[in-house]
Each structure stands twice: as structure tokens, then as C-alpha cells.
């Protein structure tokens, strides 16, 4: 094994790239869960975003319309979940699973003609003197716009939930939908908006995978990223800052195991490629063993205004 072949600068740079799709999906899902809805369809929305983003970007020969179309398509898909769970009062767990299965099928169908193609990808931003810094410039300040946008989004979500009235209403709906309803807030409407937002974020994350991270379309390419995003929300105890930490941690594990595989580490490849999933389980166990969860009190409970 030749560990010296792993450059720490490139390693951290690629951690940021590999964490971004999970971060986008996780921050969206966190908002959804803060409103009291458990959407297990993140994987399905992500992969739909990946394929729609890829297809539109290839046809338009530009990445930006791809990202926009991905966000729109996944938000629409999320609204199917929203209508079923909020208006038709279906079981959230089952509907979320259905969304994932549906998204996997839909993406395979749309993506067939695009297999093996190359997409236009996002250019690296030139941040002037920052990008020219020795070491740090290459490590932190020479990425594409989506990397910084995802971090800004985390900041925005944090500020929205903490400082704005709308954020307070969203949290109230998630903590006690009956109380929120009694106060006259439109529980279902708030939740539908949150669900659509979560879908759009997952779509952006998926498009980032197929347009920047890989950049290609292959069937089932999200490979559990959506599920890891769900786990990160639990890991983060529903706090925006910790979602970012979690996503970067998992991005780090993914990149490190790929680098170790490439460097020919004396660890079985099966163990390395399973490591992101094993570490997710480990983290979930540690978090649940520690107790204090901080989950929104109405998470996953159906709301029916029976008055």
C-alpha cells in the first residue's frame, strides 16, 4: 500500500464535492421533517433529479437548465407524495417507500437513451485571489457554484428556522399539528410547501451527482445516497449546522475508502465499499444509544382536522 499517493489537499477538495449531493438532499429532508412529515422517498426523488437534470443538460448543452429542471421534476414528484399523505391521508412510511420504488423505475425509463453519454458540467468558479491561495485555494476555493450554494442553503435554512416567523410556524406545525391548527395555521398547506422544498433539494442533489460528481448517467447511480441523507438528518438531531457536519463526514468516508481502494490498501474491497453504509449504521446506533433525539414531536403522524 502506498499511502503517500493520497494527497490531503486533493482529498479535502474531493470530500467537498462528494458531500454536496448528500448535503443538498439532507437539508431539504430536514425541513420536511421539521414540518412533521417523514418522507422516505429521498432516494427516489434524488435519482429522478439525477436523470432529469442529466437529460435536460445534455439536450440544452448547458448544466444550469439541468439543475433547474431537476429541482422542478423532483418537487413535482414530492408533491405526489404530499397529495397522497396530506390529502389522501396515506401511511407516510409506505408512501415514501413507494416514492422510492416509483422514482427508481421512472429514472431507469427516462435514462435509457442517455446511458454512456457525457454531460456538460459546471465550471469551477474563479474566486480571484482566494483561489490563488497556496494549499487552501485548491482545497476550499476552487469548486463549482453548487458546492457554495449548498453551504449557503444550509445557512439560509438555519436562519429561516431560527429567525423568521414562517420558520416558527413550520416548526409549530411539526411539533404539534393540532395546536398549530387550533391557532389557525394551515397545517396541510405548510407541509405541502415543505415537501415540495425537500423534493427540489433532493433533485438538486441528484443532478449534482449526474452532472458534476460522476458526471454520467447510470441506472441506480444514487446507490443509497438518499437513504444516507435520511440517516444524516437523524444524526444531526434535526439541526442545520449538524446536517452539514454529517454530510461532510460521510463525504469524507466515501472519498477516503475510494482513495484507499485506489492505493491498494490491505483491506478487503468489499469491506471498503460497504464502509459508508456500515459507518451510517454505527452512527445511527451511537446517536440512538445516547438518547436525546430532538425529533419533531409530530414526525410521521397523520394530520386530520376532524372538527
Amino acid at each position: 500500500m502506498d499511502l503517500s499517493s493520497i494527497s490531503p489537499v486533493l482529498l479535502i477538495a474531493s470530500v467537498m464535492v462528494s458531500a454536496t449531493p448528500i448535503l443538498l438532499a439532507a437539508i431539504g429532508e430536514m425541513v420536511v421533517e421539521k414540518s412533521g412529515v417523514l418522507n422516505l422517498g429521498v432516494e427516489g426523488m434524488m435519482i429522478t433529479g439525477a436523470v432529469v437534470g442529466f437529460a435536460v443538460a445534455v439536450n440544452a448543452d448547458a448544466p444550469v437548465p439541468g439543475f433547474m429542471a431537476a429541482a422542478l421534476a423532483s418537487a413535482l414528484l414530492a408533491l405526489v407524495f404530499g397529495v397522497l399523505t396530506q390529502l389522501f391521508l396515506s401511511n407516510q412510511v409506505a408512501t415514501g417507500l413507494g416514492l422510492t420504488l416509483f422514482g427508481l423505475g421512472l429514472s431507469a425509463l427516462i435514462g435509457k437513451p442517455y446511458e454512456g453519454m457525457k454531460s456538460p458540467t459546471l465550471p469551477r468558479l474563479d474566486l480571484g485571489p482566494l483561489s490563488d491561495l497556496p494549499v487552501f485555494g485548491r482545497m476550499l476555493f476552487s469548486h463549482d457554484a453548487m458546492v457554495y450554494l449548498s453551504l449557503l442553503l444550509v445557512l439560509a435554512v438555519w436562519a429561516f428556522l431560527k429567525f423568521t416567523r414562517a420558520g416558527l410556524i413550520l416548526r409549530a406545525v411539526g411539533e404539534s399539528h393540532d395546536a398549530a391548527h387550533a391557532l389557525g395555521y394551515k397545517v396541510v398547506r405548510v407541509r405541502l410547501v415543505a415537501i415540495a422544498f425537500g423534493g427540489a433539494c433532493a433533485g438538486l442533489g441528484g443532478a449534482y451527482l449526474s452532472l458534476v460528481r460522476v458526471p454520467q448517467w447510470t441506472e441506480g447511480m444514487t446507490a443509497g445516497a438518499g437513504w444516507i441523507a435520511l440517516a444524516i438528518v437523524v444524526f444531526a438531531s434535526w439541526r442545520a449546522g449538524r446536517v452539514a457536519i454529517g454530510a461532510y463526514l460521510f463525504g469524507g468516508v466515501t472519498v477516503l475508502q475510494l482513495n484507499l481502494q485506489a492505493a491498494g490498501a490491505a483491506v478487503p474491497v468489499a469491506l471498503l465499499s460497504a464502509s459508508p453504509y456500515l459507518i451510517t449504521i454505527l452512527v445511527l446506533v451511537i446517536i440512538s444509544a445516547r438518547g436525546a433525539h430532538g425529533a419533531p414531536a409530530s414526525l410521521g403522524r397523520p394530520f386530520h382536522a376532524s372538527a
Binding site: 420504488l101 416509483f102 422514482g103 427508481l104 423505475g105 431507469a108 425509463l109 435509457k112 441506472e219
Partner: peptide, 8 residues
């Protein structure tokens, strides 16, 4: 894949 979609 159409069948997978159909099942979903």
C-alpha cells in the same frame, strides 16, 4: 423499466 414504473 416501464414495468418497474408500472409496479411503483
Amino acid at each position: 423499466a416501464a414495468i418497474q414504473l408500472f409496479q411503483g
